[in-house]
């Protein structure tokens, strides 16, 4: 009985984090983006500097009509947002916040594989949405999503494999247990490749070709309204949280920090994740969208070779120190 309670409690906490963290990132994006453009951003909702803007947005989305186009494939169309969102919830459950069993939703032995595999499923939601909308722009968006996923999945996996090689384990907590500060310069190239490829997989600017609004309206999500559209947006921000947390865990040492008490490891994890989320927003504000061919070129001619070089370096160092 105690076990059941424990599991239920953990899942509840994961669920709450899953709902709150993307909103925090979204609100930060509102404000940071505004100030980077010399604006103020939302100022009214909730009173103090528009802190409740996303809550208000959610209420608005919930009130809207849920439209399914007449020519659409109803079942697939309606299922797509759930397919896009749920994988991130699963991934969040296995990301360790701090050392020990207490600070992780569910320990998974093959953590890296689980995380990357399940994140890949999320993109299936975009594909389903793009196809089922019976809209040419949506289909184009779906195609671009698929092309982007196919080309960026490889460097991401290779970069993750480099860390797994360094640590000698594919468990996320195992990797963090093996972490030492000098991994940071050692794996820096892998970290960059992983982060960039992750951004591309999330279709975040400057890799947001699949939703390029000036060309194909909103890509796969063009026909979506109301709550289902909100779910897609939530999936995007949940994806940011996951990507940042994962980069933190794999490359930045998670709960390890230069100072601080043993019990405060989770604070380091959160801090690094928040910093990376800021970088994600920062990149969005700073850079224009890449063209489709530039996207592919970056993946195949830059990221994949870099990731392979990182793996080679990891192997050499690993053999040298053992």
């Amino acid at each position: 009985m105690n076990d059941v309670l424990d599991v239920a409690l953990r899942l509840a906490i994961v669920f709450v984090v899953f709902l709150v963290a993307p909103l925090l990132v979204g609100q930060t994006e509102h404000k940071v983006m505004a100030h980077m453009q010399g604006r103020l951003g939302p100022m009214y909702a909730g009173g103090f500097h528009g802190w409740a803007q996303l809550v208000a947005d959610g209420v608005k989305f919930a009130q809207k009509e849920d439209v399914v186009p007449a020519a659409a494939d109803r079942r697939v169309f309606q299922l797509a947002p759930a397919v896009a969102l749920l994988p991130y919830l699963l991934v969040l459950a296995v990301i360790p916040l701090g050392p020990g069993d207490g600070a992780v939703g569910q320990l998974v032995d093959a953590g890296i594989f689980f995380v990357l595999a399940v994140m890949g499923i999320g993109v299936l939601g975009s594909l389903m949405a793009g196809w089922a909308s019976a809209n040419k722009f949506s289909l184009l968006g779906g195609l671009r999503t698929a092309a982007q996923l196919l080309s960026y999945e490889l460097p991401m996996l290779l970069a993750a494999a480099s860390v797994a090689m360094a640590a000698g384990t594919v468990s996320l907590t195992g990797i963090l247990d093996a972490f030492a500060w000098w991994w940071l310069p050692w794996q820096i190239v892998g970290a960059l490749v992983f982060f960039v490829a992750g951004l591309a997989e999330l279709q975040r600017p400057p890799f947001d070709m699949p939703v390029a609004d000036s060309e194909i309206i909103f890509g796969a999500y063009t026909e979506y309204t109301g709550l289902r559209f909100a779910l897609f947006l939530l999936a995007e921000y949940a994806g940011i949280v996951i990507l940042c947390a994962l980069t933190t865990v794999l490359f930045l040492g998670g709960w390890h920090g230069p100072f601080g008490a043993d019990g405060l490891g989770w604070l380091w994890t959160l801090l690094k994740t928040a910093l990376l989320a800021f970088v994600v927003i920062w990149l969005r504000v700073s850079y224009p969208r890449l063209r489709e061919d530039q996207l592919q070129k970056l993946a195949w001619t830059t990221l994949v070779p870099l990731a392979l070089a990182q793996i080679a370096l990891t192997g050499i160092v690993k053999v040298a120190i053992s």
Partner: peptide, 9 residues
Amino acid sequence: VGSIVVLLL
């Protein structure tokens, strides 16, 4: 699921 089916689609 992540690669083959995406390629198929």
